[in-house]
Every structure is written in structure tokens, then in C-alpha cells.
Design a protein around this nucleic acid. Structure first.
Lengths: 215, 215
DNA sequence: AATAAAATCGACCAAAAATGTCGAATAGTC
DNA sequence: GACTATTCGACATTTTTGGTCGATTTTATT
């Protein structure tokens, strides 16, 4: 047994079903080890939660750096950033953040700040450059828009989880992101946007038809 | 404040996020009342859980009786029963049942038995009649099939919740039900089945196109 | 308006559950 | 076979939560 396996398991449990849903006993029995062993690698529950938060931030950061490598064009770039957010929303339960906020407030602000600091400069840069490039409306106030989208992201994230019974989280979140995109896109760039979106849409539609064709 | 409002709220919270996720304080504050008031209407937490279980069973029973009113044909009838199950799966979190099993075992068996006793005779009747009618394969052993489908229902129910990040629960559960339908349908009745299914499918596809047309 | 009755609040207590600890037991190594 | 490293699960301590009670507010009545 090593700390990586434990951390990985805790990460998975915490991010998918929330922190309070699992006691230290639960985690130990999930790993088929004793609590003693668990406490050999993590000095306390608090410690474990901190490490998981660190991992969440690191993963998000890494995904964003991956998205930075997206080829030319600020439109494509922003779509790539959004795809990362969709993925994050899909795999992370809001319960993780509500538990964090309630029981580990310090870690919550630290993580939230960290995540913000990852997305904020990227959005700002891509917006400013995109306005110059002419794909986003010139009347936009980049700093303000970045703040707004960050607020919206958090709300959409919670909302997607609420609607989980009727739609997949991905669907909800993606719709919200499209709404945002059409809000900032320059009129001249709409055809370009629709070409880019059709790639995602096509992938989606293929999935659906595939499914529907089974009967 | 009255007991119906309390019960309704507890029902919603328990069935959507599980029982252990909410303390009596949580429920009280959710209703913006004090615990004292809560305990005026329900003698204990156990009592409240029991009442919620009773309500779950009653709702399911009522929905099934509604499905009984479906017009002619055993195929339509079984589709109506399945629609009830899809609805039930959609709005009920498996956490509700796992919490029940762990912390209120007596209520769990009572509720499970009750739900089984609602679906069992209906499926048995519709299968037996459907075989005579010729819409289901004659080689089926109705009693055995009923037992099997009941087992499958429970598994699918849990599974749908696991896949919740990728697909909507409805989609998963409906696919599972189709699988079952094609398993029991008589070859001659397949066209009839597909006509019936296309009604649902059409409704689904309309939804999807509607959504996709927004961009 | 005064009084009685009913309902509500939130601090409080006791019981239950969770975190974190420790000596005993086990497995591996020389 | 003795020594070391690691694991176990029972146990003590802390935290949380179910349930209670007197004080207080609200409502109804005269």
C-alpha cells in the first residue's frame, strides 16, 4: 500500500459523491486496509482532504495547459477551455464543494482561488486578443466579462447537478457555455463559430443516432 | 405549518439525495422551522422515515394503477408499466435505498416487498395474457421472467445512477427496458413493438433537435 | 386591551457516530 | 529464531446529531 493509491481512491470518492459521504472507516474498507494503515500515510482527515484539493487543482491546471496547446485562433482556444470546464463539471459532484465550504472553509477558498487563478488569465487573454482579432464583439469589457463568466460557471455547475435526472450534466453545461459564446461572438464570426460547434454537435448527434438505432 | 408540508419536503430531500444526507436540523432549517415544531408532527426521525417510505410506496402504487387504465393490448400495457419505472428511477436516488438498507433495515424490506407486490402481479398477468395474445414468445416461463426482470430492475436502477455523469438516467434506464422488451417479444409482434417505441423515440428526438437547433 | 391558549424557538442534554491511538499480531529478512 | 517493518481492529476521545424543555411569540377570545 502506498499514499498514491490512497490519494487516488479518496480523490475519486470525494469528487464523485462529496466528502462527508465517506468516513475514514469507509475509505479504509474501500481500500481493504485498516485505519491504522491509512493514518500512516495521512496524519489526519484534514490532511487527506487537503491533498485531494491539491490534486483537484493540479488536474485542472494540467488540463488547461493541455488546452493552451490548441492550434491557431482565439475562438478555438476558448472552445478548448470550455471543453475542460465541461469535463470538470461532468466528473465533479457539487457535493464536493458544498462539503468543503461547510467543513473545510479554508481549503475551499484556497481551492476556489486556485481554480479561478487558472481560468482567469486565460479567459482574459483570449478575450482581449479575440476582440482585436475580430471574433468577439468590440463592445465587450474583457475584465468584466471574465468576472461574469466565472460567476456563471459556478452557478451552472450547481444547476447541472440539479437537473441530473432529466438531462446529462454535459448537456446542461454545454448549453450554458453556448449561451455565453453567442453572447460574446462578433456577428461576422458567427459562421465560423457554427462550423466549430458543428464538430461537437456532430459528435453528439452520432452518439444519439447510434443509440437510437439499436431499436 | 402542517405535517403534509413537512412530509412532502422530507420526501423530496430523502428520495433525491438519500436519507443520511439530511439531519433533523437540516430538514427543520430547510422548512425554516425549529426542531421543536418538527417533533410536534413526527415523534422521531424513525417515524419520519417510515412516513416517507409509506408515501413512496403509495405514489408508486398510484402510478401503476394509472398505468392499468392504458387501453387495449398487453404490449401497450407493459410499456406503460415500464414508463412508470423509468419515472421512478428518474426521481429516486439509489442513496435513498442504500441508506434505508443500512440504517432502517426493517423499513427497507417492507418497502421493497411492497414495491415488488405492486409490480409482480401486473407483470405476471400481462406476460401470461401477452403470450396467449401472441405478442410475447411462447417459450417464456412467465413466473421466472417476472423474477428475472425484478432483479434486473434493481441493478439497472443503481447502474443508471452511476452513469449519471455521461447520460441522463432516463436514457440509461430506457435502454435497459428496451433490451428486456426485445428479449420477450414474439417475432411477429416486432413491427408492432417498433411502432409503439417510435412514439417515445420521436418524442425524444424532437427534444434533441429542438435543443440542437438553438445553435 | 387584557388574558388565555397554542405554537414556535433555539439552547441544551444524552446518545450515537466519527476521528484518531495503541498494544498485539503478522509477515518478511537476515 | 530473533529482529524489524507493517498491519490489524479494539478502544478512548471528540464531534455530531437525535430528541427535550422552559422561555417567548403569536393567535384567539372575551
Amino acid at each position: 500500500m502506498n499514499e498514491h493509491i490512497i490519494l487516488h481512491t479518496a480523490f475519486r470518492l470525494f469528487t464523485t459523491h462529496g466528502i462527508q459521504a465517506y468516513t475514514m472507516d469507509d475509505i479504509a474498507s474501500q481500500l481493504a486496509i485498516s485505519k491504522k494503515t491509512l493514518y500512516r500515510f495521512f496524519t489526519s482527515r484534514h490532511d487527506l482532504v487537503q491533498q485531494v484539493c491539491k490534486q483537484v487543482a493540479a488536474d485542472y491546471h494540467q488540463d488547461m495547459e493541455e488546452a493552451d496547446k490548441t492550434g491557431e485562433g482565439n475562438l478555438r482556444r476558448i472552445l478548448a477551455y470550455m471543453a475542460v470546464n465541461v469535463e470538470f463539471c461532468k466528473k465533479t459532484s457539487p457535493a464536493f464543494f458544498t462539503d468543503l465550504q461547510k467543513h473545510y472553509p479554508a481549503e475551499n477558498v484556497a481551492l476556489t482561488d486556485k481554480l479561478d487563478s487558472v481560468i482567469e488569465p486565460r479567459l482574459l487573454k483570449v478575450l482581449e486578443q479575440g476582440i482585436v482579432e475580430g471574433v468577439f464583439r468590440g463592445s465587450l469589457h474583457p475584465r468584466l466579462i471574465v468576472s461574469l463568466i466565472q460567476q456563471h460557471l459556478k452557478k451552472d455547475f450547481e444547476f447541472a447537478a440539479e437537473l441530473v435526472n432529466d438531462y446529462s450534466k454535459e448537456e446542461v453545461f454545454r448549453q450554458a457555455q453556448y449561451l455565453f459564446l453567442y453572447g460574446i461572438i462578433a456577428a461576422e464570426a458567427i459562421p465560423q463559430l457554427e462550423i466549430e460547434l458543428s464538430k461537437y454537435s456532430l459528435a453528439n448527434r452520432l452518439e444519439h443516432t447510434e443509440k437510437n438505432e439499436t431499436f
